[in-house]
Design a protein around this nucleic acid. Structure first.
Lengths: 124, 124
DNA sequence: CTTGCCCCTGACATCGATGTGAGCGTTTAG
DNA sequence: CTAAACGCTCACATCGATGTCAGGGGCAAG
């Protein structure tokens, strides 16, 4: 498939798909005229990239983790593993942060409900 | 306390504290010469703002939720409640996203471990 | 009074993913 | 063959929270 179809199938703009390739996150085979061609594996890869980007990872970080480009080596694998563990910790603490924010929000919601439940007293 | 101490106590830069005030998230009393003065309540408020910002809310959204400025009214309270519920849903789905990303990451980590556990076979 | 440290405002810079548009080639349906 | 729809590259714009710098006051201790 060409870039338009990959875009439609993943919900990611063509612009972003080209950007991912630019950052080394996605490899495409090119037709003789230079057009990008993809297969189903790329769909999954794009979804993975999306999940990581949405989780707040930078494209550079993803590029370090997912060795999509060159052939793997033990040295790079160890490096990737280090990054992955660091990111995993980051994700966990981000989840804690979200949970804390949500709980604070729940308190605010409760306060607000109580305020609205009271009969109107001092309205301007 | 003045802005420097609030900054030290919360770990938030002076610049950001002034920005919060600019966006209507924080109110300060001013000394006759124009310097901002705060008390312990502001420390808690700043922590709340930090939690919400870290959770990906925009300062405009926070400003709509936390009526720190004018006196409350039932109308504004209903509006705030609507925003809060929307944001709560956003937080929940962000948490789901993080969990999904972390689980995908766990798969990658596992794959990587397996690769490293295998005896070296085809190293360049 | 002066020195040192804090504060004020205002303006410009940064980063990263994405949008947008121009100018130009390619593929495909009629 | 032609026109529509798609693709390519390059370049500039955007947004939001924050950093940083400049120029000018404020306040306490010597």
């Amino acid at each position: 498939m060409r870039i338009g179809e990959l875009s439609a199938r993943t919900g990611v703009s063509r612009r972003s798909l080209r950007y991912y390739e630019d950052q080394g996150l996605l490899v495409s085979s090119r037709s003789p005229s230079g057009q990008r061609h993809y297969d189903d594996d790329h769909v999954r890869r794009v979804h993975l990239i999306q999940a990581f980007l949405a989780a707040g990872m930078s494209s550079a970080t993803i590029a370090e983790m997912v060795p999509c480009m060159a052939e793997p080596s033990r040295h790079k694998a160890r490096h990737a593993l280090a990054i992955m563990n660091r990111e995993r910790a980051r994700l966990s603490s981000a989840m804690d942060g979200l949970a804390a924010a949500r709980s604070a929000l729940d308190h605010l919601i409760e306060d607000n409900r109580n305020y609205l439940a009271k009969p109107a007293a001092d309205e301007p």
